[in-house]
Amino acid sequence: MALHRRIELLQRVLTDETVQLRTRVAACLVLLYAQPLNRIIRLTIDDVLHDGQHVALRLSDPPTPIPEPLASLLLDCLAALPDNTPAANRGSAWLFPGRRAGQPMASGSLRHPLKAIGIPSGHGRTAAIRQLVLQAPPPVVAQALGYPNKSATRVATGAGAPWKSYAPGNHAR
């Protein structure tokens, strides 16, 4: 997926209020943070950190900062949870609660609405991580997104990243 297409899709999901809020948030996590659906559905409300000024999402350690306008969408999604949670799953800690008590939404239940608005979750995620490893060293991207270093390095090598010879680790002497 080309960068300009990702940007078009992001603009749409960030502004189109006819699209369900949780679908918009999931689309942004795929297109910006290269998150697979099976990780998105496992996010909990405790993974969203808000100190009054900044919003972060615990994709790994340390948590990843979330800029505006996605930060507002994420907080709106949290606020809407009581009304958008199936009755069997009230009080659930899942950010994307499922229909079964104590369970998150099934990834297919998220894949279908994304596909309906033109977001190919697999291609969108691949395009996002390829772009990210072209902009920063693979170990940095891997840590920020919760990916294994080897996976990010493999993507960087395939993308022809200028960071492919970056030596990870502590270089302090």
Rank of each mutant, 00 (worst) to 15 (best):
A27G: 04
A27Q: 04
A27T: 05
L29C: 08
L29T: 00
L31P: 05
L31R: 05
L32S: 08
L32R: 13
L32N: 07
Q35S: 09
Q35M: 13
Q35K: 09
P36I: 02
P36S: 11
P36L: 05
N38P: 11
N38Q: 15
N38S: 14
I40S: 01
I40M: 07
I41A: 02
R42F: 10
L43K: 00
L43I: 06
T44I: 11
T44G: 15
I45H: 06
I45T: 15
I45P: 08
D46L: 13
D47F: 06
D47K: 00
V48Q: 07
H50Q: 00
Q53D: 12
Q53C: 09
H54N: 14
H54E: 14
H54C: 13
H54R: 15
V55M: 06
V55Q: 02
A56H: 04
A56D: 01
L57K: 00
L57C: 08
L57E: 00
L57P: 01
R58G: 04
R58S: 00
L59E: 01
S60T: 04
S60R: 05
S60W: 02
P62I: 03
P62N: 01
P63S: 05
T64N: 09
T64I: 07
T64R: 15
T64E: 09
P65M: 03
I66N: 02
P67H: 15
P67L: 15
P67M: 11
E68V: 03
P69I: 03
P69L: 03
L70G: 11
L70K: 10
A71G: 07
S72A: 15
S72E: 13
L73H: 01
L74A: 02
L74R: 01
L74Q: 04
D76C: 10
C77F: 12
C77E: 08
C77M: 14
C77R: 15
L78T: 02
L78S: 03
L78Q: 08
A80Y: 02
A80F: 04
L81C: 09
L81Y: 08
L81F: 10
L81S: 09
L81Q: 08
P82Y: 08
D83W: 12
T85P: 02
A88H: 09
A88V: 08
R90P: 08
R90W: 08
R90D: 07
L95N: 03
F96V: 12
F96I: 09
P97I: 06
P97E: 02
R99Y: 11
R100P: 06
G102R: 08
G102K: 07
Q103G: 07
P104D: 03
A106W: 09
A106M: 13
A106T: 11
A106F: 09
L110S: 05
K115E: 13
K115Q: 12
A116Q: 15
I119E: 04
P120F: 09
P120T: 08
S121G: 04
S121F: 12
G122I: 11
G122A: 14
R125N: 07
T126E: 15
A127E: 13
A128H: 04
A128C: 06
A128I: 10
R130K: 14
R130C: 13
Q131T: 14
Q131I: 07
L132N: 05
V133M: 01
V133P: 06
L134E: 13
P137W: 01
P138Q: 03
